[in-house]
Design a protein around this nucleic acid. Structure first.
Length: 127
DNA sequence: ATTCTTACA
DNA sequence: TGTAAGGA
C-alpha cells in the first residue's frame, strides 16, 4: 500500500469532526455503520475513529441516498464493486502468467536459434 | 465537553 | 431518524 493510501486509511477523526465534514448526524453515521456501509475503528476508550476514506464513503452514501437508493440498494452497489475488484485481481494474476509465458517462448527462440545456452534468459525472473 | 448504548410519553 | 437517559 502506498503512503498516500495509508494516510487516507488512517483512522484519526472523532465522530464530531465527521459530523461537520459530512453534515450527517451522529445517529445517521452510527446507523450506516450498523448497516456495515462503513467500518470505523475504535480507540482505547471505545470511541469511533474515522479515516479520510470513511469520510468519502459517507459522502458517497449520502449521494446515493439523495439519488433515491435505499440502504440495501447501496449495499448491493458495494457488493458488486467488491466482485469487480476481485475479478481484476484475478486478471492481474492471469496477466503475470501471460508475461511468464512470453518469457519462456522468448527463451525457447533464443536457444533454438543457437544464440544463447538454454535458460540463460530466465534467470530469477520474479513473478 | 464528547461520545457511547439503549430505548421510545 | 430524532432525542432523552445514564454511564464512561
Amino acid at each position: 500500500m502506498s503512503e498516500k493510501e495509508l494516510r487516507r486509511s488512517m483512522s484519526v477523526l472523532p465522530i464530531g469532526t465527521v459530523m461537520k465534514l459530512t453534515d450527517l448526524s451522529a445517529r445517521q453515521i452510527r446507523y450506516y455503520e450498523q448497516q456495515e456501509l462503513i467500518l470505523p475503528e475504535r480507540n482505547e476508550g471505545n470511541r469511533r475513529m474515522y479515516s479520510l476514506n470513511d469520510i468519502d464513503r459517507l459522502l458517497e452514501i449520502k449521494d446515493y441516498l439523495d439519488e433515491g437508493l435505499n440502504i440495501s440498494g447501496i449495499k448491493e452497489v458495494y457488493k458488486k464493486q467488491q466482485m469487480i475488484e476481485q475479478e481484476k485481481k484475478k486478471n492481474r494474476e492471469k496477466q503475470l502468467t501471460d508475461t511468464d509465458v512470453r518469457r519462456i517462448l522468448e527463451d525457447e527462440f533464443l536457444h533454438i536459434s543457437g544464440l544463447m545456452p538454454p535458460s540463460s534468459t530466465l534467470n530469477n525472473q520474479k513473478l
